[in-house]
Structures are given as structure tokens and as C-alpha cells.
Design a protein around this nucleic acid. Sequence first.
DNA 1: ATGTTTGCCTAACAATCGTTAGACAAAAAT
DNA 2: ATTTTTGTCTAACGATTGTTAGGCAAACAT
Lengths: 203, 203
Amino acid sequence: MGETIKNISKEQIISAAAKLFRQKGYASSSMRDIASSLHIEAASLYHHIKNKEEILEIICFSMAKRFLDAIAEVNDIYFNAEEKLRKAILFHVEIITEDIDKSAVFLREWRSLPDTFLQDFLRLRNQYESDFTRIIENGIEEDLFETTDKKFAVLSILSSVNWINEWYQTEGKMRPNEIAERISDFVMGGLRKKLVTDIHYRP
Amino acid sequence: MGETIKNISKEQIISAAAKLFRQKGYASSSMRDIASSLHIEAASLYHHIKNKEEILEIICFSMAKRFLDAIAEVNDIYFNAEEKLRKAILFHVEIITEDIDKSAVFLREWRSLPDTFLQDFLRLRNQYESDFTRIIENGIEEDLFETTDKKFAVLSILSSVNWINEWYQTEGKMRPNEIAERISDFVMGGLRKKLVTDIHYRP
DNA sequence: ATGTTTGCCTAACAATCGTTAGACAAAAAT
DNA sequence: ATTTTTGTCTAACGATTGTTAGGCAAACAT
């Protein structure tokens, strides 16, 4: 018969699970589904992982870490608020497009985390949001941005960036930096041609 | 003992289900969960509905109809593209805030629809998107809007509007029309103070 | 060469799932 | 007054769930 040893790694299990979780959702993906996508039996998974919830935890928290590390880097390096915002958006898009499966799980399936982990997770998510908000605040202080409601602006920006997870395809022709640029342009106010200030515009 | 007849309506079942589907997701909400939230037994549900999937179908398609009717009304009544866009956003926000449970299911849980219904559902969703896109196109023709990528603008707008489902609370102080106004303002380019044209700005 | 560890397997478990059958009482229709 | 319909119930079904126990062969350590 075939080899009995296939040496599946923990990372392979996580990736296979993420792919399924994205397609069918966490609750609808069984351990047998995950196992058979790796051509092993469900019981074999437990040699590598504690249980099903651990898989979800690892995906959600590793992605959270990536996002938080990215925005920390932005705040370390750049000073100008617009540069910061553009770079933050670029990093965000890059992280999402680098692994659409895991980022889909991060964005959608975190609700299935057990209660204690859910609280930690939401803390991290709030941290990320407030780091983003800080950038907008910087922009306002620098007299670059103008917005009535910071919180609102951040949520609009993040929702736009997160939405790319719904339609992005690796085979697609649009590269992450193109996507990030278009979102940035749009966010910076690209849609409307005539602003109030344009009333005074003289070429 | 107590009354044996409670006369639960189909709509009560749908609402109770929507509430649970929002909290725990479709797959993680059992028929017994739905039943016990109505103080009846699971088997009793089947006097009112065909099966579990039917509940999801009804929620998803009734919400889809609301959204499509709303944007059809916008296109019937208004002519100016900015008015259209603002009204379309207002209706969208109103529909979402009117029933956060059902709209959450519409936005998140449609993936669990059986294949045939899923295709119909996505057709309706694309219809809505292209109705929205048409408004942006109108705006460009009217020389009101300026955007490199229409599809992109629409997706950004819709994602921003849909995101309110994540944080909106009925008890919150913000009314739907306030929310719609802020989103509209933001979308119309409220964030950035200094545009390229502002280089030439002379007060 | 021998013993230990690793990585898979088969088999089974209790729990829970959606759903159906059939009984029974209240309400409505005749 | 009798029949029919309606809305619930209890009980059970087969399937599937996450998980555990225990076996066995390959790989590794000594």
C-alpha cells in the first residue's frame, strides 16, 4: 500500500482549515472535512492540534498580530499623516491579499471564538482601530484632514479596505499596491469633483 | 397546566431565527435554539415552515427585495446624481437599521443558502450593485463626480454603508438619517481638506 | 540491535443535529 | 352535537459532530 507517513505540518492543517472556513464557515466545516482535504483521517489531526477551536484561535490571533505589527511600523517610520494613512492602507491590503483565506476567517469567523478568547480578540481589534484613528487625528492636527467624526471616518476606511477580501482573487490582474492606491485616492476624497472650496477656484 | 396553544406566527419564527443567526451564525443556531427562544418545541416549528433552509431563504430574499425596491424608487423619483446617491444611501441605512438582525443575516449568512438559491441571490445582489453603479455613472455624465474606477467607488460606498450593521445599536443616540448624512458627506469627499485644485485656491 | 518516539490508522463514544410520525387537546366549522 | 382543522406535544430516527482510545508501522535514538 501507499506510504503511511505523510508528515503533515501544523501549518498545513491551519491553512487547509482556513481555506474551508472561508468557503463554508467555521461551524459548517467539520474536522473530517479538514482532514480529508489533507488526505488523512480526522483523528490524525489531534496529533498536531488540541481541538477545533485552537485552529480558529491561531488563525484569528496570528492575523491580528500581523495587522497590529504593520500599523506599529507605520507609526514608527512615517511622520506626515497622509503618508502614514496611505502606508497603513497599503500594509492592510497587502496582509489581506497575501492570505485571503486566513484574512477571511479573521474578518468573518472570529464570532465563533470561545468567550475568553473573544474578549482578547476584540481588545486587539479595538487597538488597531484606535491606532488608525490616531493617524486621522494627526492629519487633523497637521491641518491636512477635515472630518466631523473621526470614528466614522476610520470605520468607513476600514470597511472599504476589508471589503476587498470579498472580491479579491489571486489570479486577478490588480496588484495589491494598485488596490491600495485606489482606495487611498477614494478615501482622500476623489469622488466629488466640486467641493465647497471649488466655488472660489480660479485656474 | 398552562395553555397548550401559543399561536406562534411564521413571522415570529423568522424574527427569532434572524436574531439567533445574527448572534451565533446560521450553522451554529439549531432548530431547538430557535424553538426554545419562542418557548416551544423544535418539532412545532415544522407546522409553520418547511425546514431550516427556508428560514434563511425568506430572510435573505425579503431583505434583497427591500434593497432593490428602494433603489428602484430612487431612480424613479430623483434626477440629480448627488440627490440620487444621497437618497440611495439614506434608504440603505434605513433598511439596515430598521431590522439589524435580518440585515445581518442578509449581509453575512447568505453563503449558507443552498446552491440554487445562492445563484438567484447573487443575481439580485449584482443587480443592486449595478443600479448603484449607474448612479455614479450619471454623476460622471453630469460632471458632478470624478472617479477613475466606478466599480471601485461603488464597492467602497456599499462596504461603508454595510459596515454600520456591525456597530449600530437601536438604543444608540445616532439616528439613521444622521448616519446616512455622515456617510454621504464622507463619500462625497469630506476627509481631505487640500485637494490638487486647492493649490490654486485663493480666498 | 533494541527501544522510543512519531504520525498515522481503525473503531468507537456520547452529544447533537434536522426532521418525521403520531397523539392529543383546543378551536373552528358544520 | 359532531366533525374537521389547527397548533402544539412527546418520542424517536438516522446522520453527523468533535473527540478519545488503542494499535501499528516507519523513523529515530541509543
